Computed example of a mutant assay.
Amino acid sequence: MYIGLKHLHSGLAYLALLTLAIVVIYALIGALSNRPFTERDRKIAMVAFILAHVQLLVGLILYFVSPLGFSLLTGGGAMSDSAARLTALEHPVINILAIVVITIGYTRAKKFAEDRAKFRSIYMLYAIGLVLILSRIPWENWLG
């Protein structure tokens, strides 16, 4: 189960990051071109929103079944080792924060009446969430 979840979390990350980047660019172009915010735009933002949340859910499950997740915090010594601290604390906390920011961007966009404000809410807050996620990816484990 652990290996399957680990592969799912890693593979889904590519898809989630790609869709977040596409939505940020797409919404930025929409805001700059002053085009109307359509149902299609909402659905594109929703796909990235859903993928980010599924990725978080898989990550949280993995965190509690992994020998490198929560157990590192309870065993002690994780704060003195930067790789252990990233895995046990920084990666999950920052990614939860990133998903909260993305959620705020999506829900705010639904409440605005002006099209440009909807695009702005999505591209700004999705971009912040994307940067937060990218900042806490364990690159040496992921690419190596």
Results as ranks from 00 to 15, higher is better:
residue 116 R to G: 07
residue 11 G to T: 09
residue 33 S to Y: 02
residue 109 A to F: 05
residue 50 I to D: 10
residue 131 V to A: 15
residue 10 S to Y: 06
residue 75 G to T: 03
residue 78 A to H: 04
residue 124 M to W: 10
residue 99 I to S: 07
residue 109 A to Y: 08
residue 130 L to R: 10
residue 25 I to T: 11
residue 136 R to Y: 08
residue 100 V to W: 00
residue 62 L to Y: 10
residue 103 T to L: 01
residue 91 H to Y: 03
residue 109 A to V: 05
residue 75 G to Q: 13
residue 78 A to N: 02
residue 141 N to Y: 14
residue 134 L to H: 08
residue 62 L to N: 06
residue 116 R to T: 14
residue 43 K to V: 07
residue 70 F to C: 00
residue 25 I to G: 08
residue 103 T to V: 04
residue 4 G to M: 13
residue 88 A to M: 06
residue 109 A to C: 03
residue 84 A to T: 01
residue 65 V to M: 05
residue 29 I to R: 13
residue 127 A to T: 09
residue 76 G to W: 04
residue 15 L to D: 07
residue 115 D to L: 03
residue 85 R to L: 10
residue 2 Y to A: 07
residue 117 A to W: 02
residue 40 R to H: 11
residue 69 G to S: 01
residue 138 P to V: 11
residue 76 G to M: 03
residue 99 I to V: 15
residue 8 L to H: 04
residue 12 L to M: 14
residue 15 L to V: 15
residue 123 Y to H: 15
residue 96 I to F: 05
residue 96 I to G: 02
residue 128 I to M: 12
residue 55 Q to H: 11
residue 11 G to H: 10
residue 40 R to A: 14
residue 115 D to K: 05
residue 99 I to W: 02
residue 94 I to W: 02
residue 26 Y to N: 11
residue 55 Q to F: 10
residue 106 Y to L: 07
residue 120 R to E: 13
residue 6 K to H: 11
residue 102 I to G: 01
residue 3 I to N: 12
residue 86 L to D: 09
residue 133 I to E: 07
residue 81 D to L: 01
residue 100 V to T: 06
residue 103 T to C: 05
residue 37 F to C: 06
residue 46 M to I: 08
residue 31 A to C: 08
residue 42 R to S: 14
residue 106 Y to I: 05
residue 119 F to D: 08
residue 74 T to L: 11
residue 105 G to K: 05
residue 26 Y to W: 15
residue 22 I to H: 04
residue 34 N to L: 12
residue 96 I to N: 00
residue 96 I to T: 03
residue 18 L to W: 03
residue 73 L to F: 01
residue 83 A to E: 07
residue 84 A to H: 02
residue 102 I to F: 08
residue 41 D to Q: 03
residue 75 G to F: 00
residue 8 L to V: 09
residue 143 L to T: 14
residue 137 I to R: 00
residue 17 L to A: 09
residue 36 P to Y: 08
residue 31 A to F: 11
residue 125 L to Y: 13
residue 111 K to Q: 14
residue 78 A to T: 02
residue 89 L to V: 10
residue 36 P to W: 06
residue 65 V to D: 07
residue 109 A to S: 14
residue 91 H to N: 06
residue 73 L to K: 06
residue 61 I to G: 07
residue 75 G to R: 09
residue 87 T to D: 03
residue 126 Y to W: 08
residue 24 V to E: 09
residue 76 G to D: 01
residue 109 A to K: 01
residue 10 S to R: 11
residue 81 D to A: 01
residue 41 D to S: 07
residue 99 I to K: 06
residue 118 K to R: 15
residue 35 R to K: 13
residue 30 G to S: 11
residue 136 R to P: 12
residue 127 A to M: 13
residue 10 S to K: 11
residue 68 L to G: 01
residue 7 H to Y: 15
residue 121 S to Y: 04
residue 27 A to Q: 14
residue 29 I to M: 12
residue 105 G to P: 05
residue 11 G to Y: 13
residue 39 E to T: 15
residue 97 L to C: 06
residue 78 A to M: 04
residue 120 R to T: 15
residue 75 G to K: 11
residue 64 F to L: 06
residue 102 I to M: 07
residue 99 I to M: 01
residue 56 L to F: 13
residue 12 L to R: 00
residue 109 A to N: 07
residue 1 M to C: 05
residue 21 A to W: 09
residue 125 L to E: 11
residue 126 Y to H: 09
residue 85 R to M: 12
residue 30 G to R: 03
residue 98 A to V: 02
residue 46 M to Y: 12
residue 26 Y to V: 03
